[in-house]
Write a protein that binds this DNA or RNA. Sequence first.
DNA 1: GTGATGCGCAACCAATGGTTGCATTTCTGG
DNA 2: CCAGAAATGCAACCATTGGTTGCGCATCAC
Lengths: 112, 112
Amino acid sequence: MSVTVDDELWSAVGDPTRRRMLDVLLADGGGTPTSLSGQLPVTRQAVTKHLGVLHRVGLVHVTPAGRERRYEVDEAQLARAVAQLSAVGAMWDARLQRIKRIAEAIQREREE
Amino acid sequence: MSVTVDDELWSAVGDPTRRRMLDVLLADGGGTPTSLSGQLPVTRQAVTKHLGVLHRVGLVHVTPAGRERRYEVDEAQLARAVAQLSAVGAMWDARLQRIKRIAEAIQREREE
DNA sequence: GTGATGCGCAACCAATGGTTGCATTTCTGG
DNA sequence: CCAGAAATGCAACCATTGGTTGCGCATCAC
């Protein structure tokens, strides 16, 4: 009964820099490698690599415009990612609940 | 207005192998490096390294027992991790909602 | 005691997140 | 129209990390 999440998608949002990139892209409604690197503590080249990762898993799409490449978040795919996050969280929550119930049962048993 | 999640904790659960280790530990109520490596596609030594990471961020605690080292999930800390996952998810959701509202507003504006 | 079991440590390898440097394309101002 | 600035891509390189194998040490079990 493994979670079997899409590891590709998860590990794309697993990187802190990429999460912040998604934050910035959402806040500004898109951006270019240069504009992003201006708001992040990494170089433009690093940003480009991350955009490549995000693009491969479909979390962003790109629109070349002259000498710029404008990137925007793919809403549907990000929604999928969010769903996976909460799915894993929910499963762990459920397991914790079950453990808690068992612990309480043992406690009760010991008290009688 | 960055999310400012604890990157340490997030990246601990960011690794797929570590997530599966947490799954197994929760399902079995704990385990040793050897028992874990038996249920995962990695060697005991790799498991040990991951347990080190999980231990450093407080997601598991260990109880030496003879020649074995029994690891168990720290429920409170895992609950914190789950909270962070849903916090980030909620923020992205909120931004997506906002974007959707703006898009709808533009659409409405164009239609009149 | 001797052998099997569980573990830690060290060396090593591949992937990846980061950098710098340089060549290329596209604007833009005289 | 041309020269320089701006935005990008590409390649080489480095450090960290997730993985392996090999080995030595402690502990249990007969």
